[in-house]
Amino acid sequence: MRVTRAGLFSVLIGWLVSAPLQADMQLQTEEYRLKIEVVAEGLSHPWSIAFLPSGEQLVTERDGRLRLIQKDQLHPDPIAGVPEVAATGQGGLLDVVLHPDFENNQLIYLSYADATDAGLTTRVMRARFQDHALHDAEMIFEALPRSSGGRHFGGRMVFDQAGFLYLSIGDRGEMERAQQGDDHAGSIVRLHDDGSVPADNPFVGDAAVRDEIYTLGNRNPQGMTLHPQTGDIWSSEHGARGGDEINRIMAGLNYGWPEVTHGVNYIGTKITEHSELPGMESPLLHWTPSIAPSGITFYTGDDFPAWQGQLLNGALKDRLISRVSVSYAQGEYHLQEEERFLQGFGQRIRDIRQSPDGILWLLTDETRGQVVRLRPANE
């Protein structure tokens, strides 16, 4: 499916281009008028948000700080015990997720870029969060081999309904690595909550592919979420110049990069002659030209009933939210972009999440980034 801009409803507020979002602003979409609530600001490139059972929020800053929001106030002190991160290029402190049994074990997971003399890579750390600090920290996964360069760390994590942890790892800017099974780069890995390898991972026993790998051929997925009915993992993936993708992540599949793509190199030259090939999974939707998709979430709340079951995507390059309808018929999913909004504000949207109470939250990937809520304007 090729998505174009023709016929899309676009909300443009020209005088606000590149301006921070302001509290009590309102925004008209096709279906709803939204009220913008700025919860916190002045964060350095916030990357991820996690919702604690207490009603508080954890937010990562790419520079390497983990912050706490309490009653809509940003705690002045960063949380202690965060590992040293390589805040270089696109790297730094990335995702934060809670263990499925967080209420009993207080475990959280951080993904981050790490540097040694051998180069850079993506790591995952597990620790217990208590008294504004991380305790009993342990590194449970490291993508290998390391390499130079500050691009395409991936870093998005999600737990599925069975308690397995999924982590995206980008191709590190070296596209051929995404087709090399002995290399974690350009893959999605699946782990137990302690970092060990599930016995039913699709390549366990295959000497040519690392046991942790769940899928191959992924360029740089930076959004992952669960389908609310099936529990399947869905991802958003950066293409090059065009070819951004939405994929359903299934065990053992090869998503094609760089053997197949709808995009081209940034200088306009071809990457491949193929947009599809036998044995390689095609995307459910692709954006050409690119919007640079980031965090994604399926909307299941009550505030915006017309959006229920639809996929909401943040975007970095085009600085917007994309709303995509999702339907299922005759064994296949069908996706159609319905609307783009928020682009008039000129803010890079790093993540979009739905909190447990059904509210939409955004993170803006800016030097003075913001944590923002969207509510119906008539509340």
Rank of each mutant, 00 (worst) to 15 (best):
I291Q: 07
I291E: 07
I291K: 05
I291H: 06
A292F: 05
S294E: 11
G295H: 09
G295M: 06
G295W: 07
G295Q: 09
I296Q: 06
F298E: 03
Y299E: 02
Y299T: 02
T300L: 03
T300V: 13
G301D: 03
D302T: 14
D303V: 03
F304P: 04
F304E: 10
P305T: 08
P305H: 06
A306K: 13
A306C: 08
W307M: 09
W307E: 11
W307Y: 13
Q308E: 09
Q308F: 00
G309C: 05
G309I: 08
Q310R: 10
L311D: 04
L312E: 02
N313V: 15
G314P: 09
A315M: 09
L316Q: 08
K317F: 12
K317H: 14
D318T: 15
R319L: 10
R319A: 14
L320A: 15
L320K: 14
L320E: 15
I321D: 03
I321T: 05
S322Q: 06
S322G: 14
S322W: 02
V324Q: 01
V324H: 03
S325N: 04
S325C: 02
S325I: 00
S325W: 00
V326M: 00
V326R: 01
V326C: 01
V326Q: 00
S327T: 15
Y328I: 01
Y328E: 14
Y328H: 13
A329K: 11
Q330R: 12
Q330V: 08
Q330I: 05
Q330W: 07
Q330E: 15
Q330A: 15
E332D: 13
E332K: 13
Y333A: 02
Y333T: 04
Y333E: 03
Y333K: 01
Y333G: 04
H334P: 00
L335N: 01
Q336I: 11
E337A: 07
E337C: 05
E338L: 11
E338K: 06
E338S: 05
E338P: 00
E339C: 08
R340A: 06
R340K: 11
R340V: 13
F341T: 13
L342P: 03
L342H: 09
F345W: 12
F345Y: 15
F345T: 05
F345P: 04
G346F: 10
Q347S: 12
Q347V: 07
Q347I: 06
R348D: 11
R348L: 10
I349M: 12
I349R: 02
R350L: 10
D351V: 10
D351T: 14
D351M: 12
I352F: 01
I352M: 03
I352R: 02
I352W: 01
R353P: 03
R353L: 08
R353S: 15
R353D: 14
R353Y: 07
S355P: 06
S355Q: 09
P356K: 00
D357M: 03
L360N: 04
